[in-house]
Design a binder for these strands. Structure first.
Lengths: 230, 230
DNA sequence: TTATTTTTGCGTAAATTATACGCATACGCA
DNA sequence: TGCGTATGCGTATAATTTACGCAAAAATAA
C-alpha cells in the first residue's frame, strides 16, 4: 500500500486538582518551540512504539513529574485542520484527577515551568487548549453526578464537609448538607474512621475514607450512583 | 523540529440500524488488501486535508452509500500496537445510527459487499473490530437511558409499541408498556399524528412522531431525560 | 463564667416519582 | 357472536427526593 499520510498524533492531558475550595488545572510553559513562553496543557507527540496511555503517562512524568489518581480518554480533537500552525496534528485528550495540588511539580525535560491555575484565573492558552479545557470541565461535572470521582480529588481521609464543598464547587450549585450526607452514606462506599479533623471552630467532625473495593463491587453489579440534587 | 512519526490515523464507524425487532450493524467486505474477504466496520485512513468528521462521512458514502441520522465520536483505539498487522494504526471510532436498514447499500469504491448483520449473528470480524463493536453497543445502551436516540433508529412516524420494543431489545430487558408510554409522553417530545399504523390484529394504534425542536429546547435548558425502568 | 457563633450529626414530614397493576376499547378472525 | 390480541387510560401503593428542624460539641466573644 502506498499510503502517504502526513498527520502527527499527539496526546494532551487535562489534569484537575483541588485545593482551598478551588478547582485547579495543571499547565506548563514550554522552554523551546512555538510554545515558548505560552501556557499549555501537558502533552506531546506519541512515539511509534508506545501506546496512547503510555504516552500520556510519560508526558505527565516528564513535564510535571506527577502520577495521577484517575485517567480516562476524553475526546480526540481532529476537526480543526489548523490547530497547530506548524502542521496537521490530531490530539487525543485525556482527563485526569489528582488528590493533591500541593504535590511537587518538577519542571523537567521540556517544560520550563509547571503550575496549578484556579479555573477562574486562567492565563491565555496555546492552540485550542482553552476549548479542550472546557470540554474537560463539562466532563468532570457530568461524571461527578454518576461516578464517585470526587474522592480522587481529595486526600485519603477527608471531612464530609470537604466532600460536600467539592461537589458544590465543581457543580457550581448549592446542595443541602444533610441530604448530601444521607445520599452519599446510603451508597455504603465511604467509611467512618476513628480520627477527627481539625477546624477552627464548630463541633469536631470525623474523618471519612472512600472504600474503593466496595465501589468496584457495586459498580460491577450495575448499581447506579445517581448523585443529583435539586 | 525533526519529528519523524510513523503512525497512521484511521476512522471507523459503527453504524446501528433497527429492523424486524432486531438491532443490526453495518459491515463491509473489502475487495483488496489484507481485509480481502473479511467482514469489517466501515472505515479508512484520514486524508491530510480533511477533518475526522469529513473522513467518516466520506467513508460512509464511499463504502456503503449512506447518510446517517446520528453521529458522534465513540473512542480512539490506540493502545494495541498491533491492531493492524501492516503498521501502527490509531483509529478514531464513530458511533452512528440510521433509521432504516432497508436503505440501499451500494458497494462502491473499495467495498465488495456491504450488509446488515443482526447483533446475534455476527461473522468473524477483522482486526479488533469485535471489541470496538462491543464498546459501541454499551454506548448505545447507556445513551438510550438519558438521551432520546431511539427515534434515530425508527422511521419518522412510528407506533408506541415499536418504540417500546426497540427499548426492550436494545436494553435487553422487559419494560412495563403502560409506564413506558407515560414516561415518554411526560417529556412532551413525541406528538400524536392523525394517522394509524396497521398491524395484523388488535386495536388500531396511532402513529407518533418525534419533536426534535422541542427536544433541543428542553436539552438546552438542562432537562434530564431519565429513561430508566426497573 | 456565660452567652454566642459555628459546624456537625440525626431525624422527620411533605412532595414528588416510580412501580405494579386493572380494565374498557377496538380491531381481526373463526 | 365470542375469542384473541393490542391499545389507551387510570389508580393505589411503594420508594425516593426535597425541605427543613433541632440538639450536640467545640471555639470565641462578652
Amino acid at each position: 500500500m502506498e499510503l502517504k499520510q502526513n498527520i502527527k498524533i499527539a496526546v494532551d492531558a487535562i489534569v484537575f486538582g483541588y485545593a482551598d475550595n478551588k478547582l485547579n488545572v495543571l499547565l506548563i510553559k514550554q522552554k523551546y518551540g512555538v510554545l515558548k513562553n505560552k501556557w499549555a496543557l501537558v502533552g506531546g507527540f506519541v512515539k511509534d512504539d508506545e501506546t496512547l496511555n503510555d504516552a500520556v503517562n510519560r508526558e505527565l512524568h516528564e513535564e510535571a513529574g506527577i502520577k495521577v489518581n484517575y485517567l480516562e480518554q476524553l475526546y480526540t480533537f481532529g476537526d480543526d485542520l489548523d490547530r497547530d500552525p506548524r502542521f496537521r496534528v490530531i490530539s487525543v485528550a485525556y482527563f485526569a484527577l489528582v488528590n493533591s495540588t500541593k504535590l511537587v511539580l518538577k519542571a523537567d525535560t521540556d517544560a520550563e515551568d509547571a503550575r496549578w491555575f484556579p479555573l477562574d484565573e486562567l492565563p491565555a492558552l496555546a492552540f485550542d487548549h482553552q476549548s479542550i479545557l472546557q470540554t474537560a470541565q463539562k466532563r468532570l461535572q457530568s461524571k461527578l453526578t454518576y461516578q464517585p470521582v470526587g474522592f480522587d480529588l481529595l486526600p485519603k481521609e477527608f471531612l464530609f464537609s470537604e466532600l460536600e464543598t467539592l461537589y458544590c464547587t465543581i457543580l457550581e450549585k448549592e446542595i443541602d448538607r444533610r441530604n448530601f450526607r444521607k445520599k452519599i452514606l446510603s451508597f455504603g462506599i465511604v467509611e467512618e474512621t476513628e480520627k477527627f479533623g481539625n477546624k477552627k471552630s464548630g463541633r469536631p467532625a470525623k474523618l471519612f475514607k472512600f472504600n474503593g473495593l466496595k465501589y468496584n463491587k457495586l459498580a460491577q453489579e450495575g448499581f447506579l450512583f445517581d448523585i443529583n440534587f435539586a
